[in-house]
Nucleic acid binder design. Structure first.
Length: 894
RNA sequence: GGGCGGUUAGCUCAGUUGGUUUAGAGCGCCUGCCUUACAAGCAGGAGGUCACUGGUUCGAAUCCAGUACCGCCCACCA
């Protein structure tokens, strides 16, 4: 195949791994071979992940990169494990966000507002925009290596999806769970729409508490109220005091005069009023405050709206009409002061409601909107988590979930926007074509009868996304194909998302699936931490502290970005990210790439190297390496089941770099000019191949490229669809591994000595290993593996035996009960050696005392598990032997 | 006002059911190496009373209680 040449670009001129070509070519290869497609016809056990659909307006950010990396790793692991793995991609129409973007574009290019353009034409323009730019983010995701089934890509405004949304609305209405109501809602004066409670953030700000005198109608004095929002007094319809308040009891039932407007308003008693707060009297503005609204209902007060949808004072505000609410506030305070009615002003921390999206201050406004009654939906969703059908990772997010659902309030779903799912409600019209509210409405997907007009409003974006897990699979279509797909892939297996949309999306999806499908949407929920900048701040455009994943991919490679993100993603902790963190991934990719060359240069093209030796016939280092590999696979599998991908990947990293490269490859590497024998080569290939597979879900590009360099592969025989390595415990020998580990310690000790005395690492030296006694097999093993010492510590002359005397003028290394002597004629610094040995003895003594104290404690010996006690005994024996050796060596120095 | 998370090496962070942890990694630092896989590297090294106080336990970075600081979420006190 032609691309093979580019895909297999040799390191050549540069020794460093260059990801750019490889990443592009191999993504193409996967796509061309249809490896991302999931098909129920295979009959395999399915594994489904629904991608949280990014906004069509969005550009790829680090949060996507992190979550996609995790989702892709999980998808690739399951695919390799033989599951029919579906990762379903999609995009969200994102009502307000998209409308704003297109609005701004038109304003900039043509100077027109959306009202100038007109609703229908505007929506056409949004569609044009979506067609042109809306898919960008999904293109960007391909750069990350996302192995989604792109053929199934869905958009929340697709025809079928729209149908699902309407169907849901109608059903909920028919069930009595959707109603139309006239209530105080969160109004955003910038976006000119109602919002749900979840879309409002409460922000604490410095404000004031103004004490205002309200004269009594009978001229007998005044009552002082305290408020943080004086402009709302224009809408006051009462003043409330506590019924038990001795100061004001006599005033209850009388009237006060509302200053500035000189309206008479009643003085009422309500237990809501806190006597000790402010002056003990509360102005009541049912039209602009939720609490006041409730009080107003109790006392049957008039609800006056004095602020209009653009946040200016309306005609009810008399002289203040037309002023912005904040200008009106200033003016009112000034006027009150001039009238002598401002008693005092105190600085005060106020909680200001802010639109999540526009950041504008929310105004509670009386408005007719559509609501979903949530309590009946919440119950089954709570139950599904309570009884463990759905599990949170980490578990602590359950609490947040419970708390929200247990206190859930009705959901305002209508939005006064143009872009979105039009509400399937129809109104009668009068002879002028105007909506005739008095005749009621009909809830229906289709126009019920000619002349009826559809509700102008659209639905909250989340009212479509909460259907994502099943609407994307074709619900509510009933044809055979769709139904079977839905049955096969739903419920999905795991949802990967950040905690920022726990309420917006995750909880609501569970409610929707429980209600409409009668089953959970997913078994597990993996909540990731959020990506912050290196100072721990949210990344934002305004701060300019964002890190662009595409730039990072450009600079470090997608595999590197994925590697670093995965390793950094621990247990739902937020990640403070700095671009330098990607160096870790880049360096590792480079290491992987270069390690191949150690044996790869001996691979004859087209030859398939297979191991012929059984485990027992292998070299010690090979047995050790296989043991390490199989033990690691076991641990990695366990980590994956608990979604501890960072731990799994760290283990593979250590295995590859710390074991395979640093020890195994160093030992099997043939001397200069020689070649590698076929048996050695076969195992090197096998080990490397297995690690390539283990790494593939995390670093798919480089591993796929190397996979094809390792062996001749049949068409379609790709790493991405290869079988996930099984831990072969039959090929693990912990005793052999321990023997090798001892040699590692000895070699490190010798290297240490050489380094300490400034002996060049390459200089050949002699060494003597003194064993405390005839240790069965160990002496022979060490003698047999003298080449290991030669290779790794340049020990040209190794003597091994029990009772070996310490050669003259030698430095010593004590490892447990064993001694290693390194003769260094004329170079040994006795003072230095003494100092070092003393220090080591001190450390060891301290340790031994600790161990002995434990063992002398009868409680410990009797209560601790036998194996733990035995382990301590072993520690004591080792430490004692080591101390004896160390002391002897010190004495020997005189 | 409630709830949750964090506090471990100079920096950024891992650390699973309490015991093979004499607490690890990456970066940074010190020493020596361009040793034909890799200087994006190799070898060696320094560096930590695991925030603080108490408790449980034979045994605590890990469990419990409290304290301090940092961060987040929720809540109608004007």
């Amino acid at each position: 195949m032609e691309t093979q040449a580019t895909k297999q670009a040799e390191p050549g001129a540069s020794k460093a791994y260059d990801p750019s070509e490889i990443e592009r070519a191999w993504y193409q290869y996967w796509q061309d071979n249809g490896f991302f497609r999931a098909d129920r016809a295979t009959g395999k056990k399915p594994h489904t992940i629904m991608m949280p659909p990014p906004n069509v307006t969005g550009a790829l950010h680090m949060g996507h990169a992190l979550q996609d990396t995790i989702q892709d790793a999980l998808t690739r692991i399951r695919r390799m494990q033989g599951r029919e793995a579906l990762w379903m991609p999609g995009k969200d129409h994102a009502g307000i966000a998209t409308q704003n973007v297109v609005e701004r574009t038109i304003k900039k290019q043509e100077g027109l507002s959306r009202h100038d353009v007109g609703r229908e034409a505007f929506i056409d323009r949004v569609w044009e925009w979506v067609d042109e730019y809306g898919g960008r983010i999904l293109q960007q995701k391909r750069r990350l290596g996302d192995s989604c089934d792109w053929d199934r890509e869905r958009f929340t405004m697709d025809e079928r999806y729209v149908h699902a949304v309407q169907r849901v609305f109608v059903q909920l209405y028919e069930e009595g769970l959707i109603y139309r109501g006239h209530y105080l809602v969160n109004w955003c004066p910038v976006d000119h729409t109602a919002l749900s409670d979840e879309e409002v953030d409460n922000v604490e700000r410095d404000g004031h508490l103004w004490y205002i005198k309200y004269p009594l109608a009978d001229d007998s004095g005044h009552l002082t109220i305290a408020t943080t929002r004086p402009e709302t007094m224009l809408g006051d319809t009462a003043v409330a005091v506590h019924p038990d308040d001795e100061r004001y009891k006599h005033l209850i039932g009388k009237n006060a005069i509302l200053p500035l407007l000189n309206r008479e308003i009643p003085i009422i008693a309500d237990e809501y009023v806190k006597m000790e707060f402010g002056a003990g009297a509360l102005k009541i503005t049912p039209g602009h405050d939720k609490n006041d609204y409730e009080i107003g209902k109790r006392h049957d007060l008039e609800v006056l709206s004095v602020i209009s949808t653009d946040a200016t004072i309306n005609e009810e505000g008399g002289p203040y009409a037309g002023l912005d609410r904040f200008d009106a506030r200033e003016k009112i305070v000034e006027d009150l002061e001039a009238l002598g009615l401002l008693e005092k002003t105190e600085p005060y921390k106020v909680s200001v409601p802010i639109s999540h999206r526009s950041k504008a201050v929310i105004e509670p406004l009386l408005s007719r909107q559509w609501f979903v009654e949530m309590k009946p939906l919440a119950e089954p969703a709570l139950e599904a988590v309570r009884d463990g059908r759905i599990r949170f990772f980490p578990k602590r997010w359950e609490n947040e979930y419970f708390r929200w659902l247990e206190n859930i309030r009705d959901w305002c779903i209508s939005r006064q926007l143009w872009w979105g799912h039009r509400i399937p409600v129809w109104y009668y019209t009068d002879e002028n074509g105007e909506i005739d509210e008095a005749r009621g409405f009909v809830v229906s997907i289709e126009q019920p009868e000619p002349g009826m007009v559809q509700d102008n409003d659209v639905l909250d974006t989340w009212f479509s996304s909460w259907l994502f897990p099943f609407a994307t699979l074709g619900w509510p279509e009933k044809d055979d194909n769709t139904q079977r797909d839905l049955d096969y892939f739903h419920p999905t297996d795991v949802l990967v998302s950040g905690y920022d949309i726990l309420f917006f999306w995750i909880a609501r999806m569970i409610m929707a699936s429980m209600h409409f499908m009668g089953e959970i949407p997913y078994r597990d929920i993996f909540i990731t931490g959020m990506i912050k900048d290196k100072l721990g701040r949210w990344m934002s455009k305004s701060l300019g502290n964002g890190i662009d994943p595409l730039e990072m991919i450009e600079q470090y490679g997608a595999d590197a970005v994925r590697f670093s993100l995965t390793v950094l993603c621990a247990q739902g902790q937020d990640i403070k990210l700095d671009p330098s963190r990607f160096e870790m991934g880049r360096n590792f990719a480079n290491k992987i790439w270069n390690a191949f060359n150690v044996f790869g240069r001996f691979v004859e093209p087209g030859k398939d190297y297979r191991r012929r030796r059984s485990f027992d016939e292998l070299e010690l280092v090979e047995q050790w390496m296989l043991t390490r590999l199989n033990r690691t696979i076991e641990a990695v599998d366990a980590d994956i089941e608990r979604y501890r991908l960072n731990e799994a990947l760290t283990k593979i990293y250590t295995l590859f770099w710390g074991d395979y490269c640093d020890w195994y490859l160093e030992l099997i590497k043939p001397p200069y000019g020689e070649t590698m024998d076929e048996d050695t080569l076969a195992l090197a290939v096998e080990l490397y191949e297995t690690m390539v597979q283990l790494l593939h879900p995390f670093m798919p590009f480089i591993t796929e490229a190397l996979w094809h360099r390792l062996r001749p592969r049949a068409d379609g025989e790709a790493c991405i669809v290869s079988a996930w390595p099984a831990a072969n415990t039959a090929e693990a020998n912990d005793r052999a591994a321990a023997t090798f580990s001892l040699m590692q310690e000895m070699i490190s000790g010798i290297r240490n000595v050489k380094s300490r005395y400034g002996v060049a690492p390459g200089k050949e030296i002699a060494a003597t290993i003194n064993l405390p006694r005839e240790t069965d097999g160990l002496e022979a093993a060490l003698q047999e593996h003298a080449p290991y010492f030669a290779r790794l510590a340049r020990v040209a002359d190794l003597t091994v035996g029990s009772g070996q005397p310490k050669p003259a003028a030698s430095a010593s290394v004590v490892i447990r009960e064993h001694e290693v002597f390194v003769p260094l004629s004329g170079m040994v610094d006795l003072d230095h050696e003494r100092e070092r040995l003393s220090k080591e003895i001190k450390q060891k003594e301290k340790f031994l005392v600790g161990v002995q104290r434990k063992l002398q404690n009868e409680q410990f010996v009797s209560r601790a598990p036998a194996e733990v006690v035995e382990r301590e005994r072993q520690k004591e024996r080792d430490a004692t032997a080591e101390l004896r050796r160390l002391r002897a060596n010190l004495e020997d120095l005189g």
